[in-house]
Amino acid sequence: MEARGGPEVLRFGELAEPAVEAGQVRVVVKAVALNHLDLWVRKGVASPKLPLPHILGADVAGVVEAVGAGVEGLTPGDAVVLNPGVSCGRCERCLSGQDNLCPKYQILGEHRWGGYAELVSVPAANILPKPANLSWVEAASVPLTFLTAWQMVVDKLQVRPGEDLLVMAAGSGVSVAAIQIAKLYGARVIATASSEDKLAQARALGADETVSYAQPDWFKEVRRLTGGKGADAVVDHTGAQYWEGVIKATAWGGRICLVGASSGYEATTPLSHVFYRQLSIFGSTMGSKSRLFPILRWVAEGRLKPIVGATLPLAQATEGHRLLEERRVFGKVVLEV
């Protein structure tokens, strides 16, 4: 990426190889998955002061090529998945397992060079073994979205068996992961999307009920499906366009977890609903590095699965951005290197 703007600012070319510093591992990238974060960085919405040129890409699967001084337990040739959250590893937050609250927290592809490349270097703490049952493309589809969804569903919302969980924008990577994790924890899932095709795929993935949010007053259908109660918990990243509906779709005493705002940041909040109905609203970004361990175990057992909507070569990253931006896929868009 040489400038801010539309997908056309992406360039395919040559840059210097990343160094392998002490405590780091250099990985040959086999596949890198796209996220909406890539679009926000490209547009300058996220990290607008980032020096250019910049290499995007948070979700990487590949092979260890070299290890830096002091690295143990990893050798060239190991098949690995990269954890996209990089932290100092020494502060109080990191040592308490809240590394995604580290003052020096960075996300691969946003704050530091990422995986739209042949090689990428990361701290050894960010390397995990690739589940043997996954292809490179599938493995690259796991880290960021499943970490994000895990923190939302399990850590923040603390979803319990029998609760109604509303998952907004079911076709997104985060929502695909959230549906599966919620079912793993015994919730009844109501998924929303704008097209019947995406709603059908959400049902195939495990959603118990689906609602089209293309319809006016879609939140009333959520309330009808819950016997007038509303959703006990909500996973949301849709932003200003749907925010009032999300609040009205939530049950008294319900919980809402926000992880993005794809339709805009400036939302109107009906405060009477928040205080009178005693709603809890949580903000969420990524998840602790530790959470990727149980996620990959569930993936290895087949209880959680990455959903790939489209696969392209790295040289077609521009088309991948268009697919994601135009919401033409259900699941992840992945670039093969």
Rank of each mutant, 00 (worst) to 15 (best):
G228F: 04
H273V: 09
P123G: 08
V299M: 13
V274A: 12
W252V: 11
L165A: 14
R4G: 04
E72L: 09
Q241K: 14
H54K: 09
D232R: 06
T285V: 15
G6S: 15
Y185F: 14
L50T: 14
L314Y: 12
L258C: 13
K220V: 10
A231R: 01
S262D: 02
A125S: 15
A58V: 05
K229A: 14
A177C: 02
G253W: 05
A177K: 05
T192R: 00
P48A: 13
G206I: 09
A139R: 05
V274K: 13
R322Y: 00
Q278M: 10
H321M: 09
V274E: 02
A79M: 05
P216T: 09
Q106A: 13
G70I: 02
A149H: 05
G239R: 07
Y116A: 11
T285Y: 13
M1K: 13
Q151T: 12
A16Y: 00
R11V: 10
G115M: 01
P306S: 12
G253D: 07
P143A: 08
L314N: 13
M1N: 13
K49W: 03
A69P: 01
N100V: 03
V299Q: 07
S290Y: 04
E17T: 05
S47C: 09
E8D: 14
Q241P: 00
L166Y: 08
A16H: 11
L165M: 14
E325W: 00
I256L: 14
V86K: 06
E72A: 12
E336I: 14
R26H: 06
W298S: 15
S284K: 03
S135W: 03
G162Q: 14
T318Y: 01
A3M: 01
Y213S: 05
L258G: 04
Y242T: 15
F293S: 15
A3V: 00
E163P: 08
L312V: 09
